[in-house]
């Protein structure tokens, strides 16, 4: 059975990865043999300077999902490279580093910093974080998407993945823009903007007022976006949004995703990424599928 996949020139032993911002617990929870089974690891987004994150409360439970406004808390690129990257590299699983610049210049510096450290399989550009109080995200603006992707692509020695926001009128337009600008792959999708109000206090339950919705609640919308986009672009898609089980992941693969990322599910069932991987293999065996590529985008209509 062949479950290896490729993004640009980077190869992965299987299509299962973890979504940025949802997998900070590998040393605490996993033993090395287990975590080595993942296709790739995508750590939390790194910004140029350290960010302390948003005021609490930062999360809320919602029907079949959650709302978060973490605010990209991270130690900044230099400390990430010094303190966190060595342990991540030691795991021995391909690393996809998620970066976010608040300006074009910051994206350029970040790309250069990661060029210099080596040992990374790809860069994921977080163009879609809805939590920084800006009116328009890069991923909501085709021109800005094109500019940032091209800028990083020009200097990066790694494949470049554009992570898009679902908070747009037509995700296919943005996806095509990113492809034309040179993106090697797309990550679909980041969280949907949302909010929950406490009627007793008449305040939002989140310190940041608004947040991003994730989990099974968003899955059908995300599957739809992957399906629509996959028909229109040639580059591979890393799909995410409410994947809890292999059945969920297979929907995305059939809709056209080359890789799948487990996000929020890590918080409910830390075993989820491995369950998803085992379930995909079991499905292929049962259905006599020799190569995962046979089912990628192979939806019957």
């Amino acid at each position: 059975m062949n479950i290896t996949v490729k993004i640009g020139n980077a190869g992965f032993q299987n299509p299962v990865t973890v979504a940025s911002g949802t997998f900070g617990h590998s040393e605490k929870y996993y033993n090395l043999q287990e975590v080595k089974k993942l296709g790739a690891i995508i750590p939390k987004t790194v910004t140029l300077k350290a960010q302390e994150g948003n005021p609490p409360p930062r999360i809320a439970e919602t029907p079949s999902g959650m709302l978060n406004a973490i605010g990209l808390e991270n130690p900044g690129a230099d400390r990430f490279i010094e303190d966190k990257l060595p342990a991540l590299k030691k795991i021995g699983v391909p690393l996809v580093i998620s970066i976010l610049g608040h300006t074009d210049e910051e994206f350029r510096i970040l790309a250069e910093k990661f060029n210099a450290v080596g040992g990374i399989s790809a860069l994921e550009l977080n163009l879609s974080c809805p939590n920084l109080g800006k009116k328009v995200l890069v991923a909501q603006d085709p021109e800005a998407t094109c500019r940032v992707v091209r800028l990083v692509k020009d200097i990066s020695k790694y494949p470049v993945i554009a992570k898009l926001s679902p908070n747009v009128t037509d995700i296919v337009t943005i996806a095509k823009t990113a492809e034309e600008a040179g993106a090697d792959a797309l990550s679909l999708i980041n969280t949907f903007s949302g909010m929950v109000i406490d009627i007793k206090t008449r305040k939002s339950v989140l310190g940041n007022v608004t947040g991003g919705l994730s989990g099974p609640a968003i899955r059908p919308m995300a599957v739809y976006m992957v399906y629509k986009t996959a028909k229109e672009v040639k580059i591979p898609i890393i799909a995410m949004g409410g994947i809890m089980t292999a059945e969920d992941a297979l929907q995305y693969i059939i809709a056209g995703a080359t890789m799948v990322a487990v996000g929020t599910a890590n918080f409910i069932n830390p075993q989820a990424p491995l369950d998803v991987l085992n379930g995909i293999k079991a499905y292929m065996k049962k259905n006599k599928i020799e190569d995962i590529k046979e089912i990628i985008g192979n939806i019957l209509t």
Binding site: K28, G53, I59, E61, E73, F267
Partner: peptide, 20 residues
Amino acid sequence: VMACGLGACLGCSIKTAKGY
């Protein structure tokens, strides 16, 4: 309020004299 309970989501942060 907690999601992961494992330090992964950074969702359960509170304010302290030494930051979140």
